[in-house]
């Protein structure tokens, strides 16, 4: 699961991340446009104390583990890469995309490629267009996509850019996002089990 956000994202994540239960069925990868490493590090530490999920900063080569939320570090693009049975986080300094690094598009494109129909893309409050192409990649891969609604967003540009690409399954007020997401997780887990 990938979450993208920028302006207003810290407050939004404080509202929803504690609502996600700790299970062994999913991990959350978060790309947030913030220039200050201190702010991202502090946010991850605070949320780790508030959440059932383990919340940590992503590092290059780190294995993606269920029950964990990873914040992508400032000034690096982040991608998921499949190596046999495991998925690792790859950080790089490729040029900025949509003026930003980490780019939500870069992260979501890689999540779509690795997790395909099991991927979930969520865009929260934020400025700019970043994330819309990534959401489309997740949708095209058979995954599920959701954006925060305008009324509960500080800024809804990122969400509306995705809506304009016709790649959004549902638009919800912030407080309803965790419950809907977990419903999708359960459905995808059931589908996988049925296939096995």
């Amino acid at each position: 699961m990938a979450i993208g956000t920028s302006t207003g994202g810290i407050a939004a994540l404080h509202d929803i991340l504690p609502e996600f239960p700790k299970t062994n069925t999913y991990a959350i990868l978060i790309a947030m446009h913030i220039i200050s490493p201190d702010v991202v590090n502090t946010t991850a530490k605070r949320l780790n104390e508030l959440c059932s999920l383990k919340v940590k900063m992503a590092e290059h080569g780190m294995q993606v583990e269920p029950g964990t939320a990873y914040f992508m570090p400032c000034d690096y693009h982040a991608q998921t890469k499949e190596y046999g049975e495991v998925v690792l986080i790859n950080l790089n300094k490729e040029p900025k995309v949509n003026f930003v690094r980490p780019s939500v598009d870069v992260l979501m494109n890689s999540v779509a490629e690795v997790f395909k129909e099991n991927s979930i893309g969520i865009l929260l409050t934020g400025m700019g267009m970043d994330g819309a192409q990534g959401m489309k990649a997740i949708k095209d891969a058979g995954g599920s996509t959701m954006v925060q609604d305008r009324d509960t967003s500080s800024v809804s540009q990122m969400a509306e850019a995705a809506i304009d690409l016709s790649c959004v399954d549902t638009v919800l007020p912030l407080e309803f996002i965790p419950k809907k997401t977990m419903k999708w997780v359960e459905e995808k887990t059931s589908n996988r089990a049925a296939q096995i």
Binding site: I10, F99, M127, S154
Partner: peptide, 16 residues
Amino acid sequence: EPKQEYADLSPYVLDY
């Protein structure tokens, strides 16, 4: 909503 022309300032603006 801010104008799209300010999107490059997104990483600096933590809330609105």
